[in-house]
Amino acid sequence: MSVFGHWIPAATLFLSLPAETPMPPRLMPNEVQRPAALRIPRGRQTFDAREALNGATATRRRCTEVPDAYWVPIPGGGACIRTYPAANRSGGGTMLVYLPGDVLLRGRGGVRLIAGSYARRSPADIRQEMTGWSRNGGVPAIFIARPGLYGSSGNHGARRRIDEVRLVDGALDRIKARYRVSRFILAGQSGGGHLVAALVNRRRDIAAAFIGSGLVSAVEVMRAYQARRRRDAGPVEDPNAVYDPIGHVGEIAGPGPDIFVLSDPGDRIVPFLSQRHYVERLRSAGRHPTHILLRGEGRSRHLLAEPMKAGAALYARGEDAAAISAALRAMAPLPSPPEEAQH
């Protein structure tokens, strides 16, 4: 789940924790991270919130001990990127790829902490999820753990920057070679949607991209939040440090992939207007995205991971945009269809 800043005049950045939530590990605004050597959880062992908060280090040699992981070098360093594959050989050269959202939260005054759900997940949970997705799509599926999360080394606190994009891009190259993939169907929720949009700008082997509540106009959202953050006096991320997918849509090569943008107009985490601006920019660049308006889960109306994965599976089975749109609207209908619905 991504928890990026939003327009609403709240004193928290991202999400507020329920009162009954146990005190999670946290970092104060000026407290430095203390990265440690990468852990290797297996089976039902759960992921470590402290590791996600502080970052994890790894070497190329350490990476060889991590199941289904790839050492990806980038300028100035590299990271061990862990994956969770579910093979279904009937799919030929197509593979479904899932990129998860952010788990870093910022509380009042800029206190940093990790979403409670993160430390309840395990490798076995992810593998089970990918197995079901692969079965639904009839092709292999894989979960790519973003840098600093779910068993990958790196720093989740430095997400949305070009290095994160390069690391995931490099992981896709290694996955492509290992599994002899000819085309990918990418799906990313929120912060994972930021990566999907970034990869669309860089790669020629993407058949389709599904972006759920995506942080696709990152600078727009961050600057708007920055203006509202002053009352809380906590630090904010520098908008100039992020990779902004909307600013690079002109780099999409050739006919490009089929792009599906899933949004809830009531999203309280990533503003709907920022997602609509991305769709409009794609259209101005001669692309033909499918914009599907749905109701997101929870009070934040932000989570669209399940319809997003369902849409990607339908695409893998050969359904067209109209059929996918109809199926997803039936799954997560808006309370009342907005007049501006476009598809």
Rank of each mutant, 00 (worst) to 15 (best):
S16A: 15
V3E: 04
S190N: 09
G318P: 10
A305E: 07
G92T: 05
G132K: 04
N30H: 14
A36E: 08
R121Q: 12
E251I: 01
N30T: 14
W71M: 04
S117A: 12
A56I: 01
I114F: 00
G93V: 08
A218F: 03
P265N: 07
D244T: 13
P35K: 09
E220L: 10
S117W: 12
R317F: 03
V242M: 05
R202V: 03
H194V: 07
S300F: 12
E251S: 15
I175G: 02
P18K: 10
E51A: 11
G77L: 02
G132W: 01
G43W: 04
F4A: 10
A115W: 11
D205G: 07
L105E: 05
R329I: 10
T83K: 01
F14P: 08
L105S: 09
A321T: 13
K309E: 05
I8C: 05
I185A: 03
V249H: 03
V242S: 03
S190R: 02
P18D: 09
E306I: 10
G318V: 01
P35G: 10
I162R: 11
E65P: 06
I292T: 09
Y98M: 11
Q128G: 14
G191N: 10
E65V: 08
P100D: 05
M130P: 08
A177L: 11
T46D: 02
V168Q: 00
D205M: 06
R159H: 09
P271F: 06
F4T: 13
A86C: 09
F47G: 02
P22T: 11
A305P: 00
I144D: 06
E340W: 08
R228V: 03
E51L: 07
A145I: 08
A52W: 00
E20S: 11
A119E: 13
R317I: 11
G256H: 00
L215D: 00
P123I: 13
R135S: 14
R161I: 07
R230Q: 13
I185C: 02
E251R: 15
V196H: 02
A332G: 06
R39E: 13
I206K: 03
L262Q: 05
V200L: 07
V200Q: 01
A10T: 14
P18Y: 07
Q275H: 06
M95C: 09
G254V: 11
A316L: 03
P245W: 02
H156F: 07
P140D: 10
A218Q: 04
P265Q: 08
G78V: 00
S300Q: 12
S122F: 02
R135Q: 14
A177N: 10
T83I: 04
D267N: 05
A49Q: 12
S122Q: 04
V181S: 05
R183Q: 15
R121D: 06
R161W: 03
S190L: 02
G250L: 00
V216N: 00
G157F: 04
T83F: 04
R108Y: 06
G109C: 11
S134V: 07
N30E: 14
A313R: 06
C80F: 03
G311R: 09
E306A: 14
L262P: 12
P123S: 06
R317T: 13
P18I: 10
N240M: 12
I211W: 01
Q342W: 04
G234R: 09
A341R: 12
R287E: 04
I246E: 02
S16M: 08
E20Y: 06
